[in-house]
Design a binder for these strands. Sequence first.
DNA 1: CGTTTTTGCCTTTTT
DNA 2: GGCAAAAACG
Length: 730
Amino acid sequence: MILPEQDISVAEAEPNPMLSLLNDEQKQAVLATQGPLLVLAGAGTGKTRVLTTRIAHILLTKLAWPGEILAVTFTNKAAREMADRVSSLTGASQSLWMGTFHSIGAKIIRRHAEKLGLTSSFTILDEDDQLRLIKAILAEKNIDDKSLPPKLFLAIIQSWKDQGLTPAKVNNPGDTQAASGHAVSVYKAYQDRLRQLNATDFGDLILHMLTLFTEHQDVLQEYAKRFKYILVDEYQDTNVSQYLWLRLLASYHKNICCVGDDDQSIYSWRGAEVGNILRFERDYPDAKVVRLECNYRSTPHILAAASALIANNRGRLGKTLWTPVTEGDKIHLKSVWDEGEEARYVGEEVEQLQRKGTDLKQMAILVRAGFQTRAFEERFLTLGVPYRVIGGLRFYERAEIRDAVAYLRVIASPSDDLAFERIINTPKRGIGQATMQQLHTTARAINNSLYHATVHLLQTGALKGKLGQALDKFIQGCERWRSQIGVLPVSEITELVLEESGYRHMWQQEKSPEAAGRLENLKELARAIGEFENIGAFLEHVSLVTEAAGNNDSNDMVSLMTLHAAKGLEFDVIFLPGWEEGVFPHQRALDESGTKGLEEERRLAYVGITRARKRLFISHAANRRIYNQWQSSIPSRFIAEIPQEHVDKISGGLYNAPKPTQRAWQDEVASIMSASSKPAASEAKFSKGTRIFHQKFGYGRIQSVSGDHLEIEFEKAGHKKVLADFVEKA
DNA sequence: CGTTTTTGCCTTTTT
DNA sequence: GGCAAAAACG
């Protein structure tokens, strides 16, 4: 199936205008259509342009039809962007297989659902549903969910799915003993329940495809032959499942082009394997590798800082980024007293830049963890600076939206027990534990869903009085609403449901300040549904797309987001606050993953720095409040890893005196680090057997110490677990 | 069954 | 210190 070489030279002979926009490396990456290709694309080197031009090139030179090209991304945004740019280059992109791993997975699984024990109308569960399911399983199996919380099982199951392990394939001694040996049987039960519910979770969208391809050669053949060209974005983020799936798909034509940057691998906690990209040349022996190293985004100082920082990581494929730009500010570094001062400082800089003519939408504040946005939000509110938090509260995760969606799920598929349970008593219909128990028992007895159990009980007259009336009204409503499917437009059905179920009324009754916003959201939901063909299409969208509502790019606002959310974005001005040990690098990353964790944190720092086009502000506070306790903190080691010649220290902080050499610079950071490091409070002060006094519990003796947590036998109050800060030596 | 009180956990990052 | 889930109470 290898196509003749001439095809490529034809393209070169008739220079294509879009190719003239590319540099030599980018052209190589576009024109090397045949065989495996790895494009190592450093930050800001134009990888999206390469990907889209490559697709356009394949289409325009007739190497393949749109339906024979598969392009996978990780985010819907990336997919949409790619589709837009391809269609502007070629005029059309509809029939391309372009989307996220998960949306492509859903599409393929729906086509072959019966081979996996599902029907094509299967639902996709969110985390909430998953946890409720696991909780029910734990209860059934009499597993104590205090010592072994559902979240633990979910994490284990997810990581197995990321690794391509079905329950039957979990065999490692370490794995089989996970969660006191219960994890495998819970996983099995969980998968059984999913199948009964005709449901999948996110991991299944990949894992089922893998199963489908390995157990049904004919299906694999169909797709492997169909996709003449495969393109993968952000290859460094693929997990084992995705990796295996891609290898199967590429086994026939072997035209797979993976684009990625090992230095931007920041999702290992979600199962991503940097090894996939590091191993590419071994997996595909005749692979070509193209490095994109010319950065068109950032100024030299910013780029040099990022390069020097990331050079501290081991096991990189290695790239040398350079930029044709010659001028630009150094990185601004500021030391502040506490987070309040940090927010004031950032606020001032933002206002000053705005006065000088920089749009607010060209500025972003990137934090390590979501909660850090709060200090800045408060500051911006008092200053009256418009801002938006990206990725904070997502539209479809709000309670009222999830409730409304649950109604639609029950109407679309009455056997959706999880949705049924969510809304059967919302608004209040007087259904409590006892009634739910009865419904569950009946459902099991008639081997049917909760919905049908309810119908059954109503018919047999087992539900009487107020309860029976309420349930009857509910069922009648559902039947009536369902009968409107295909008759009324979906947005009108939604309105009808919200009105007649009493759900909207419930919020209208509530006088809390959020209620008005919730009603607004419900309106917005009904409007959004109108854009879909049918309820099914909408429900799929809800499960796969997590977008902030009303993301108007036209509004001039400062953006606040996590470093993870910032990947793939760029701004003229970037603020990176909170560069302190423990915050960034995050303590938990260090504790749980050691050097590997530290290197991923460093890659995160690299991602953060390289988001900036013109100006970069890094800051750290000497004191920070954590769990409502003041803690002194020391500057992040990453600050010391940035060569001094690229840094401008802003006066008023700890870094006042300029130091001439890199060595002295590092010494200075080190001295600050040791000067402000506090003695480990509890360990030094308290040990086993120490007699102490507690304001509330009185005198006692320490039984054990672990970090700040003390176990104390009090003379009057008995055995208690207490934080070290609440006790003093007696 | 619904309300109030208490606890416990949080603050890593998410398709 | 704040929020959500669980427990206790009415």
